[in-house]
């Protein structure tokens, strides 16, 4: 009985991690079709903001807010200085953001050193039966992951901002003819995606620590989720996160974490062979 609870909890946690690290990319890549290879480094930056918050003595919840605002503003800056010139040039965007990713790793290593630093949060644990216990912090992560995904979905689905933003992405020429400043929406969308990545980084910091190269771990998982998710970014992320989180959780539980990660990759490749447009393809429906 308790075994089953722990097993389910582990799978749910694993799904949440996938959703947490993919939601920012679902906004940037899924909505805007901007391939941001520096996605992992945005998460890394969020983790360092959480560390900064701890160093200057902020409570953890404010550190998380600091990370969201900080990485969000950084994202706006990146959009203005780099991405803006490259809309419509997919390959160039991909290469430039890869350059950005290397630059960020190098800069953080130069100024803050290559070592791992920890961020500590006191939350306690809940006992499950006699043997097991669950960290309360991990429950927060599950909550935050689903809340982040749901609020992004609601923002784009139900608000005026979301409607105009979707219109801008669908047909920028037509939308700007209607008097909308498209550049503002590109900038805001990129900023929101970045802020979500900052949130992910800050939430991950207490469980994985901060390190300049930590982004490489997440960029692969995020891209696999969003690409196999398909054309509906938020539903796709939920489905892909569910599938890969379960795969990873089960394989990690049964064998090891590395087997879990490789299993995810193999399943993604086989899946894309048969569903090239991802799990939420709209092709052929109309």
């Amino acid at each position: 009985m308790y075994d089953a609870i722990i097993f389910l909890y582990q799978i749910l946690f694993s799904i949440s991690l996938f959703i947490l690290i993919s939601t920012g990319l679902a906004v940037i890549f899924g909505m805007m079709k901007v391939i941001n290879l520096a996605q992992g480094e945005f998460i890394m930056l969020g983790a360092y903001f959480a560390l900064l918050g701890e160093v200057i003595g902020l409570p953890f919840i404010l550190s998380v807010v600091l990370a969201m605002v900080g990485v969000g503003l950084f994202g706006v800056l990146v959009e203005r200085l780099l991405i803006r010139f490259l809309y419509g040039r997919l390959t160039d965007t991909l290469l430039a953001t890869w350059g950005l990713s290397l630059l960020m790793i190098g800069a953080v290593t130069t100024f803050l050193g290559p070592q791992v630093a920890g961020v500590s949060v006191e939350t306690g644990r809940i006992a499950v039966g006699e043997v097991y216990s669950i960290s309360v912090y991990n429950l927060y992560i599950i909550l935050v992951a689903f809340a982040a995904l749901a609020s992004c979905w609601a923002l784009w689905r139900y608000t005026t901002f979301g409607m105009i933003a979707r219109a801008v992405m669908a047909n920028p020429g037509m939308t700007s003819a209607l008097g909308v400043d498209c550049h503002r929406y590109y900038m805001l969308t990129f900023g929101i995606g970045s802020a979500i990545s900052g949130l992910a980084g800050a939430m991950l910091a207490p469980i994985v620590g901060t390190q300049p190269t930590m982004g490489g771990l997440y960029v692969a998982q995020a891209f696999v989720s969003v690409i196999t998710g398909g054309e509906l970014p938020f539903l796709g992320t939920l489905l892909a996160g569910g599938l890969f989180g379960t795969t990873n959780g089960v394989l990690s539980y049964a064998y090891s974490q590395v087997i879990g990660e490789i299993g995810v990759f193999l399943i993604a490749i086989v899946l894309l062979r048969f569903l090239p447009h991802g799990m939420t393809s709209q092709k052929g429906r109309s």
Partner: peptide, 30 residues
């Protein structure tokens, strides 16, 4: 076979091949 016959093109091809190298590096490191 899986990537090309799956119809993965352009940037998706780039990203998937990149993910392959990340996955393999992890496997060897382990």
């Amino acid at each position: 076979y899986f990537i090309i016959y799956g119809g993965i093109n352009d940037i998706y091809f780039a990203v998937i091949t990149m993910v392959a190298t990340i996955a393999l590096e992890k496997a060897v490191r382990a």
